[in-house]
Amino acid sequence: MRTGSGDDAEDWAAAGRGDGEAYGRVFDRHRDRVHRHALRLVPPEVDVDDVVAVVFLEAWRRRRSARLVEGDLLPWLLVTATNVARNATRATMRHRRLLATLPPAEHAPDPADRHDDGAAVAAFRRLSPADQQVLALCVVAGHREAEAAEVLGVPIGTVKSRLSRARKRLGAQFAEQTAGPPAPPTAPTTTAPTMTAPTTTGGAR
């Protein structure tokens, strides 16, 4: 559901002039939303707090070009979080591949190995960045398609078509995640032959 207050314009302009308190208010206003969004995108071994920090650092670095939608910086932050989370996940995958080339060490149980984010989150992570962005803006954050188009810098028709395709792909991925393993084939049943006693004719002698 959309909760952006549209109060960012004044604070963000002041932050651009070097007002640290104004920047802090923007950070406090949107930190939790960005954190929850990043959780949907990264595997458990990625530090979500690091992702959030990079998002707001990037916002500060690009403070003169960041796009506000009706005075709200959250849509831009969510798009940036999608890109940062994707890069962090790729870095983690490269680290895993590097570790796989090293001699095996004695394994210590990791609590993250037992962590399950659920089928919906797993399905969302498997989508392309473009699908994640449009779903994050229009479905998760509840922004209008016109607002998503503004922050993404694309025509509204593009947002509508992306959103339609993204919903279908998410549904397909979710169905794949929740589908159970195929049932094992059942052995054919055989009926044991019935033994019948021979019949005799005639009386006893």
Rank of each mutant, 00 (worst) to 15 (best):
V134W: 01
E106R: 06
D116F: 02
A53W: 07
G16V: 03
M195Q: 13
R61T: 00
A172D: 09
H115A: 12
A15Q: 10
D116C: 03
D32Y: 10
R144M: 08
P181R: 14
R36C: 08
T89W: 13
Q177F: 12
F27N: 11
F124H: 08
V154M: 04
A38R: 07
L163F: 01
D131S: 04
A14S: 13
A175P: 10
L39D: 13
V79M: 03
R29V: 05
R90Q: 11
R94C: 13
T89L: 13
P184Y: 00
D117T: 10
A15I: 12
R97H: 13
R125L: 12
G171W: 08
R96H: 09
S164G: 03
T199F: 15
D19R: 07
E106I: 04
D117R: 08
T3Y: 12
R29K: 08
R86W: 07
G180V: 15
V151T: 03
S5E: 15
V84C: 05
E21V: 12
D19S: 07
A123M: 02
T194W: 10
A204H: 09
R169I: 14
N83I: 10
V34P: 06
A53P: 12
P104T: 08
L99K: 13
D28R: 12
A148T: 00
R67Y: 07
A85L: 06
E176H: 12
V52S: 06
A197V: 08
R33T: 09
H107P: 11
R90H: 15
S128G: 09
F56K: 02
A59R: 00
A112E: 08
T80Q: 03
